[in-house]
Design a protein around this nucleic acid. Structure first.
Length: 419
RNA sequence: GGAGGGGUAGCGAAGUUGGCUAAACGCGGCGGACUGUAAAUCCGCUCCUUCGGGUUCGGAGGUUCGAAUCCUCUCCCCUCCA
């Protein structure tokens, strides 16, 4: 596809707001630009919320541009007030360092090491003395302007510390630094970053001259059709770390997206081209029950994050778990599929199902409930429906006596690991 | 310190002329039907139980054949006054 990157982002619905879009289009036509987004090292794994700006960077990268991810090793120690209604607690430098290392590894999985750079603003912010900061940058920021930024004004009622108030200056210094030393001309961020990014552009203009070409591009707020926040499930965040969220669960997250959202997500999170997306859109409208779009979405994103093999395994596990035919799952697949499903240790002894469900495994909280579920036909042991409350559970009959897979209801699974 | 109001099951909220109330109703949760691993809807269950019964209504004690409901003491919360 020879579409200009900005045009491509436009049809993908990925742009919320930009500075001079015509100049941006021209700039990206004329040369391969440097661009960046910042990530605060507030945790030790990326989650799918991070994927939102990363998808943008990736698209630029695929067209030959030079993405840079800035890890806020310096600012992370300060706390960005954006999107927060109360003061953040500070992290220790050790935590920040640990998180930074974990995140960098994950980013390299997504972007490779060619034509991609990770920088840490600690490297330059930490060298800035207070006096230099005040003389070189502080002078260029007008407090009235800063107060008017949405991020700050929304906090005036509840209060904001000087530290967080200063955040926008630091982020501006970052942009300036990258503009000067990494040839970065565009900063990307969530819609709530607009104020911070434009503050940086103002700084660049003041120092580098009004004709310096620095741009801002923000991404629309991702909301689900039901109005709730994208990326959160009952079980919490969806992580990119396969130890925290298994590839199977990751795959499941995407396959479960609402019809109303799926095309939007496909446009945003996959590299599928326009023609095929049109087809999928048509399919959602005419044959929603096939959920082809959801499958493609899940496949594509899972492959991007975890690789081809992970997709194949996730699909195998999916097939087994949803058909109930769990018998042919491998040990590794069981481990993965049940990563974040309830699991418990159990003895190898054969015993009555009610006692086993309540006392041995704790799957059911009372005998009353256990009986009810068994009698309702809600319980399956290794895929076999059990409706007799006097039946026994014999762990030795499947999976070499290592596991007993319990399914309650249509899709709730439990894994008993036999000791 | 003074005057009121309140603490009921996961949450919200009835019930306070003592028994018919293991405790209405709503939400949530769990099953089932339908279905597309959806949405909506409908149905059942939702303190424990060896199914005889047992233990609950902030806590302790008392009155009574019998209390979430009455009395005493006590802890906590809210509102108003100081």
């Amino acid at each position: 596809m020879n579409m200009n990157i900005i045009e491509e982002l436009e049809w993908r619905g990925a742009i919320n707001q930009t500075t001079d879009i015509d100049d941006l289009r021209k700039l990206t036509d004329d040369k391969k630009i440097g661009l960046y987004c910042g990530v605060d090292p507030t945790g030790d794994s990326l989650h799918i919320g991070h994927l939102i700006p990363f998808m943008m960077l990736k698209r630029f990268q695929l067209q030959g541009h030079h993405p840079v991810i800035l890890i806020g090793g310096g600012t992370g120690a300060i706390g960005d007030p954006s999107g927060k209604n109360s003061e953040r607690s500070l992290q220790t430098m050790d935590q920040v360092q640990h998180n930074k290392e974990a995140l960098s590894g994950q980013m390299e999985n997504l972007f490779g090491t060619e034509n991609f750079k990770i920088v840490d603003n600690y490297d330059w912010l930490s060298k800035l003395s207070l006096l230099d900061f005040l003389r070189d940058y502080g002078k260029l920021f007008n407090v009235n302007t800063m107060l008017n930024k949405e991020v700050v004004s929304s906090r005036l009622e509840v209060g904001i510390s000087f530290t967080e108030f200063t955040y926008q200056i630091l982020q501006s210094v970052d942009f300036l630094h990258l503009f000067q030393f990494e040839d970065v001309q565009l900063q990307i961020g969530g819609a709530d970053q607009w104020g911070n990014i434009t503050a940086g552009i103002d700084l660049i203009h003041k120092i580098e001259g009004a004709d310096a070409r620095a741009h801002a591009l923000t991404i629309p707020l991702m909301l689900k059709a039901d109005g709730t926040k994208f990326g959160k499930t009952a079980g919490g965040a969806i992580w990119l770390d396969p130890e925290k969220t298994s590839p199977y669960e990751f795959y499941q997250f995407w396959i479960n997206q609402d019809d109303r959202d799926v095309i939007k997500y496909i446009k945003y999170f996959t590299f599928i081209d326009e023609a095929e997306i049109k087809e999928l859109e048509e399919k959602v409208a005419t044959q929603p029950e096939k959920r082809e779009a959801q499958r493609r979405l899940a496949e594509d994103v899972t492959e991007f994050v975890h690789g081809k093999q992970a997709v194949i395994e996730a699909q195998h596990i999916t097939e087994a778990l949803f058909s109930g035919e769990v018998a042919d799952l491998t040990t590794a697949e069981i481990e993965q599929g049940f990563k974040n499903m309830p699991s418990m240790d159990a003895a190898a002894d054969k015993q009555n199902i009610i006692l086993w469900l309540v006392d041995e495994t704790g799957i059911e909280k009372s005998r009353r409930q256990a009986r009810e579920d068994v009698e309702n036909g809600a319980i399956r042991i290794n895929g076999e429906k059990v409706t007799d409350v006097n039946a026994d559970v014999d762990p030795s009959t499947a999976f070499d006596g290592k596991f007993v897979i319990v399914r309650r209801g249509k899709k709730k699974y439990f894994l008993a690991r036999i000791k």
